[in-house]
Write a protein that binds this DNA or RNA. Structure first.
Length: 112
DNA sequence: ACATTGACCCGTT
DNA sequence: GAACGGGCCAATG
């Protein structure tokens, strides 16, 4: 859950802002988002921020996956895996197998 | 203020 | 190619 301290709010908002720039039908890796956040930002923070994100939010959290092109989400939230996969498939992204998609094809290439 | 954990990544065995 | 370990920042007890 996001605690509204000044520092975290800033970082979290940055994450959400970047995630919002991911175009429809494309996906970005945690590492990419971390790199856009700034040097020295580990990918874990993105995961933390997105995990804290409520489902009602308009942030396309499902377009963020790990560097291997897999849906992470760990075992605890395996119900969300199907949800994320459904959302991505709804955007025209085809999965190779369950929870695995083709990064070369769908990876977002930011211009900045 | 210390230790542990986390929707991760990368280099080395 | 799989398994292991170190590393970064933020949140929680």
């Amino acid at each position: 859950m996001p605690v509204n301290t000044s520092k975290t709010r800033n970082t979290f908002e940055k994450v959400y802002k970047i995630v919002n720039t991911i175009p429809y039908g494309k996906v970005a890796t945690y590492g990419q988002v971390a790199a856009l956040l700034g040097p020295g930002m580990p990918a874990r923070i993105i995961g933390y921020a997105l995990h804290a994100l409520p489902p009602e939010s308009s942030v396309p959290w499902h377009r963020v996956i790990n560097s291997r092109g897999h849906i992470s989400l760990t075992a605890a939230q395996n119900d969300n895996i199907s949800l994320q996969q459904l959302l991505l498939e709804n955007e025209g992204i085809k999965f190779i197998t369950d929870g695995v998609l083709d990064l070369m094809q769908y990876l977002w290439h930011p211009e900045n």
